[in-house]
Design a protein around this nucleic acid. Structure first.
Length: 232
DNA sequence: TGCCAGGCCCTCTTTAGGGCCTT
């Protein structure tokens, strides 16, 4: 059972495709927020709308995937092998891993990775990319899937029948809470900031969820590829 | 040519099937 989570790392991946395509990462964005900023959100004085909390650190990386994007991935992310090659970025290599590990180590511990449908997509794929480099995250790292958590919270608290609650896509949740479409969908940073606001809207419940129900990174299985011995 | 992941959740369920959600 986790102790009190101190730092939340909201993150999103843009990739070459879906799990059936054995995807590779094309873009990763991590945004670190301290627990205190989530417990005491600020609101716009004029409108009363929730404001983004103070962002402690942000890491956004374009990455050469080393394989072709599916047409659908190009369509929704706006990325292509052509424009990625033009940027002359490195592949997901040991230097990329070092940047991510250093980013996590800079935050107040323990940290919790937060991703939308993270259990089904982002966590396993990040695990695969790390293990393809023969590496893994070190220290206690917890994981929270906002989609799973929000669905469960609705089941617990809502009297609305499941079929009436609507979609749990990130954009649908954002629109449900803020009555407008999220900005910059399918840009890694745009999706991370949308997820951060969605989290903030349900911060009390999700902070409690993180402390009591978040999973351990060491238990995340890779989406595909070699399975290294788990180290805790 | 057509198909393709998979854990979770829901229901017309549990001896199952199908939709969701991620790029």
């Amino acid at each position: 059972m986790p102790t009190l989570i101190k730092s939340f790392i909201f993150f999103d991946l843009e990739t070459t495709g879906l799990p059936k395509d054995n995807p590779k990462v094309t873009e990763i964005c991590l945004v670190a927020v301290h627990r205190a900023s989530l417990e005491n959100p600020t609101r716009d004085a004029a409108t009363g709308n929730l404001q983004l909390p103070r962002i402690l650190d942000k890491l956004c990386l374009f990455i050469d995937p080393g394989k072709s994007l599916t047409p659908k991935a190009t369509e929704i992310t706006g990325l292509s092998n052509g424009n990625l090659a033009q940027c002359e970025k490195q592949t997901f290599d040991s230097r990329t891993v070092a940047l991510i590990k250093e980013f996590l180590q800079r935050q107040a511990q323990p940290v919790c990775l937060v991703a939308h449908n993270g259990n089904g997509y982002d966590f396993p794929l990040l695990k695969t990319e790390l293990q393809l480099q023969g590496q893994d995250l070190s220290g206690p790292v917890y994981c929270l899937d906002t989609m799973q958590a929000l669905k469960s919270l609705d089941q617990r608290h809502s009297t609305t029948p499941a079929e009436s609650r609507g979609s749990y896509t990130l954009s649908a949740l954002y629109k449900r809470f803020f009555l407008e479409d999220p900005k910059d969908s399918h840009f890694a940073e745009g999706d991370v900031l949308a997820m951060l606001l969605v989290f903030l809207y349900k911060a009390d419940d999700l902070l409690e969820w993180a402390d009591t129900k978040s999973s351990n990174w060491a238990e995340v299985l890779p989406m595909y590829g070699p399975r290294l011995q788990q180290t805790v």
